[in-house]
Computed example of a mutant assay.
Amino acid sequence: MRLDPAGSLLDLLVPAVANLAELSGREHDVRYVLHARSMPVGVPYPANPLHELLDRFGLRHARAFTVTHHACAASLQAVDLAGRLLAADPDPDALALVVAGEKTFTRDAQLVPEAAVFAEGAAACLVRAGDGPDRVLSYASKQLGEFDGRLAEDQELTARYQRAYPQAMVEVMTAALERAGESWESLVLVLPHNVNRISWQRLCRATGFPLEKVVLDNVRSVGHSFAADAFINLHTALSGGLLRSGDRYLIAASGLGATFSAMVLEH
């Protein structure tokens, strides 16, 4: 897994924003900065790396806050929330910057028993109202609060969560497809959360979607990077030429607690 024990959260986030070429020259258009985060607490008080990030890129004028309510599905929640904020903004050029990435600084941030090993990866994207290079067609989310607890210490809770997980994930992905007016057959790709390969083999059997169309390259080489998985896997798909204009694809994510989310987009 990708780890940097000597690096800070700011060290992790800065390169992701710096590599966002579309941001250069448009910093003044950024109205909101959202940090999509899995862990409620990311650094000790009074450190605030998000506001240090604003200083680094000349974004102090933007309203900045953290989204944590959906754990590792928070990046999809952040994109949806950014879209709602921008739709209400009178400036048609207004932008929102969404960043994701966290440090594995506790045991709970390093491991989900029998499910995933976490890594330190970061990503960033810009959101605007109206059309763009990738257009959001739908978003669906489902929460099962009965699984809110410490899976590492409660084996019975873990067992129940593992039994409920496949059906809940399929239901939310199907809901997103229906809201977008799409089907499993019309999808070109599924961009997963990088928890493990086995769970996606089971989900593909349940839905009939081909496993080879699920971008699983980063499960082994990068690991589960909290809420950043969605953007990391999109970067992999775009860099690999896996998406063409007009293609529909689905991003899926789940967060402990438990949240299941899916978003359908058009490239």
Rank of each mutant, 00 (worst) to 15 (best):
M1P: 14
R2K: 13
L3F: 03
L3Q: 02
E22D: 15
L23Y: 05
E27K: 01
R37P: 01
G42P: 01
V43D: 14
A47R: 12
H51Y: 12
D55V: 05
R60I: 00
L76M: 15
A78I: 06
L86V: 07
A94L: 05
V99L: 09
A100Q: 07
E102K: 07
K103A: 02
A109K: 00
F118T: 00
F118I: 01
G121Q: 04
A123K: 07
A123W: 09
C125Q: 05
R128C: 14
A129C: 11
P133W: 05
V136H: 02
K142I: 00
K142T: 11
E146V: 10
G149N: 04
A152L: 07
A159G: 04
T174Q: 15
A175T: 13
A180S: 15
E182T: 04
S183I: 03
L191E: 00
L203D: 09
A206E: 14
F209L: 11
V214H: 10
V215P: 10
V215N: 06
D217A: 14
D217E: 15
V219F: 07
R220T: 11
H224G: 03
F226T: 00
T236F: 07
S239V: 03
R244K: 12
S254Y: 05
S254G: 08
A262I: 06
M263G: 08
